[in-house]
C-alpha cells in the first residue's frame, strides 16, 4: 500500500491525540466504526457554550494509517468552526486533502461520521 505524503505526515505526527472527559457538558463525543471492520474512531469536540464555536478537539483511532490520518486531519479542521459548519464537512474533502486511494475512501467516510456523531452528542446534551 502506497501512502501519500500527507497520510504519512499525519501518521508520524498525529495532531490532537487524547481524550476529554466524556461527562463534561462542553464536550461532544463520537465513536464510530467497529473492531470487526478494523477501524474504530473516537472523536471529541470541546465547544464554547457562549459562542457555540468548537475550541478544541481530540481523537483516538484504531485503524490503518489512512484512518489515523483522516481523524487527525478532522481534529485540525473542526477547530474554530461552528457545530453546523463542522457537521457539514464532507468525506470527499478529507479524501481529496489526503489523496486517499479508492480502497481507503471508507476511512474518510468514517471520519465524517465521527464528527457528525460528536456534534450530535453535544447537541443532545444541550437540548434538555
Amino acid at each position: 500500500m502506497a501512502y501519500s505524503e500527507k497520510v504519512v505526515e499525519h501518521y508520524e505526527n498525529p495532531r490532537n491525540v487524547g481524550s476529554f472527559d466524556k461527562g463534561d457538558e462542553s464536550v461532544g463525543t463520537g465513536m464510530v466504526g467497529a473492531p470487526a471492520c478494523g477501524d474504530v474512531m473516537k472523536l471529541q469536540i470541546k465547544v464554547n457554550p457562549v459562542t457555540g464555536i468548537i475550541e478544541d478537539a481530540r481523537f483516538k483511532t484504531y485503524g490503518c494509517g489512512s484512518a489515523i490520518a483522516s481523524s487527525s486531519l478532522v481534529t485540525e479542521w473542526v477547530k474554530g468552526k461552528t457545530l453546523d459548519e463542522a457537521a457539514a464537512l464532507k468525506n470527499s474533502q478529507i479524501a481529496e486533502e489526503l489523496a486517499l486511494p479508492p480502497v481507503k475512501i471508507h476511512c474518510s467516510i468514517l471520519a465524517e461520521d465521527a464528527i457528525k456523531a460528536a456534534v450530535d452528542d453535544y447537541k443532545k446534551k444541550h437540548t434538555h
Binding site: 500500500m1 501512502y3 504519512v8 501518521y11 478494523g38 477501524d39 484504531y62 485503524g63 490503518c64 494509517g65 484512518a67 489515523i68
Partner: peptide
C-alpha cells in the same frame, strides 16, 4: 491486541 496490523506495519 488493540493495535491494527496495517498501521503497525506502516510504523
Amino acid at each position: 491486541n488493540f493495535v491494527e496490523g496495517e498501521s503497525l506495519i506502516m510504523g
